[in-house]
Design a protein around this nucleic acid. Structure first.
Lengths: 192, 192, 192, 192
DNA sequence: ACAATCGGGACCGCCCGTTAAT
DNA sequence: ATTAACGGGCGGTCCCGATTGT
């Protein structure tokens, strides 16, 4: 039903997607669609709202904050590979079409979550003192955003998990000490 | 002339941009525009083609390959802040609208350039042997792409330069040895 | 129920009002609405029909005809401020959308009522002989119509009562003698 | 060309008027129309802008302020009868469709003009001291607005001039003294 | 080479009223 | 009386030729 919209939005973007395409993909008729959603924009917002929140997946994870952060990123990558709704939401968020002005809050929410984890890691003594949580969160969020884009464009996201691990291999040495790094490598199976 | 198109494309995206908007941004008439460009798509391709190649800016730079790589990223950030054509090209490339299928080559070209520099750095002995140039280039390109997007969304690109430096501070420790790192820090004025 | 339709009609006008807006203003579903009313036009006619007749409010008023006329105008103003149905009816009547051609009868009915009161006033000797009841009724109805429109546009009808009194202050001297005028002023508390 | 739009807007109102109707009335094609006007709203604004300003008609009139005021009202009535653009503008202004938020300024402009004339009349000693220019202007503007509406609905504006004179006969006694009133009657041929 | 105007085809979003099932 | 689904059709407008003038 609504998943069809996500697919089309993800494939063509908001503006280029036409209602007819969504109709065709979903196999429903115009009237039916407009009974559930008042407008194309409402449909897009529903897509964003309906995405299964991949952030909850690892709340029960009990590990150090840094481990939870890596797990979060992997959970995100999995959601991206698995769930078209998440993919469509990302696309709709990145193209800032002014859909309810929610884009800023989305980015800000991610930033806050990551920074929070970094602060916890700092309290746990897992962070180098030279690291600024705010700046690091910014770079991490950006890198993940970019990875997903490039992986999509070049390899249809098939290599996303490997690339996320590559990212961690490249930034963890700057975030934490050799000792913690070694611990993380074994726990997270991040081969050198 | 063609810069007006870039501005509109950058602001609205390809599909949402209308010829009329470009027309009155440029101050020309429709006849004039359609004399030079056959279609809206041709216009977009011209925007991409016409972007001043910021890659040439640092060819004359004589330094180590790693230094040239950092300089290249900074040059890219500058171009992004300064040149609407570059911004529009990025937007048009990221939204893969099927404009002549040139997106793949674009990404691949960037990847090749960065990898090439990393290989040179390896030959110069500036790279840890654990680093895979291919994978590192991939992550770096992705991170730059993401930084530009997030910086645009959150701060209208005003903090882009600072964020690029943040990125280097976070990945250089994994790329090179402490000694080279210290050298780069002074040469590139990358405070800890 | 039907009041929701009135609100939307009053706010947007007949043509611009959409059924969906009425639906979620009323909190009912489309099926329910189309069970009661055959069409959008039928709904509008129901709004007009259902308006509580403010004319009855002052039938029991026992005073001179002129006093009753002023009271009628005040009653109208009150209804306009209080009752969205009356407001919507006015809007739907003024936009002559061809809703059953009832607009002419509406205006004519108001005209007849006012003229009738003026004729009574004439018989009671309260009217100057130079006054033509027909013409005076026409002007009074028009002025009330206009006052309501302008007051709505400029002050959201909050000053309507005061403006109606202003109107009477400006036309009563032409309608009646100084003596009757003085009597009315005290009775109706129309300060000079 | 643009006059056709005025006719349709005047006949059906903004929302109910369709581009096809205007096209049909004007005898041009869609492409041609959208070359000159970017949107339906732009067309409506053009109609409002293009109306020949009937206010200038009596600037050369040399008489007392009160005489000029009456002349202004008559000029307005003439314009209303003669010029479809003026009629359409009035309709578009009265239906507040949010066309550039110019409606408030329109009403306010008329109010200011009339109040200014009343203030001049006051300085010339032609106004009773009990008259408040502000309030009087408000009522006069409203009455003119209403007259035009009712006259249109009932008699297709054919009796507008006579009704305007009726209005003046009904309000002038409250505005000025017997002596000035007599002078105005002869000068303006306002029979009792 | 450039500009202004006209023409038209096509598309897309959306809205209204109906019809099934219950 | 309500939910859900349906579809015909319309209205705005956009893109792009084609035809003029300069």
């Amino acid at each position: 039903v609504i998943l069809a919209a996500a697919k089309v939005f993800e494939r063509r973007g908001y503006a280029a997607a036409t209602i007819a395409q969504i109709l065709d993909e979903a196999g429903v008729t115009k009237g039916s669609l407009y009974f559930h959603f008042d407008s194309k924009e409402a449909l897009a917002q529903a897509v964003i709202r309906e995405q299964t929140d991949w952030r909850n997946m690892n709340t029960e994870d009990c590990g150090s904050a840094l481990e939870r952060l890596v797990a979060l990123s992997r959970s995100f990558a999995s959601a991206l590979v698995r769930d078209p709704l998440v993919r469509a939401s990302i696309r709709l968020t990145i193209e800032r079409t002014g859909l309810g002005q929610g884009e800023l809050e989305a980015y800000q929410g991610w930033l806050d979550a990551v920074r929070e984890l970094l602060v916890q890691a700092e309290e746990e003594g897992d962070l180098r003192e030279s690291v600024d949580p705010e700046a690091a969160a910014y770079v991490l969020i950006s890198a993940m955003t970019g990875l997903q884009l490039v992986s999509e464009a070049l390899h249809h996201r098939q290599d996303l998990h490997a690339r996320v691990d590559d990212l961690w291999r490249m930034v963890l040495p700057a975030l934490t000490s050799q000792k913690v790094l070694a611990r993380l490598r074994t726990k997270l199976s991040l081969a050198v």
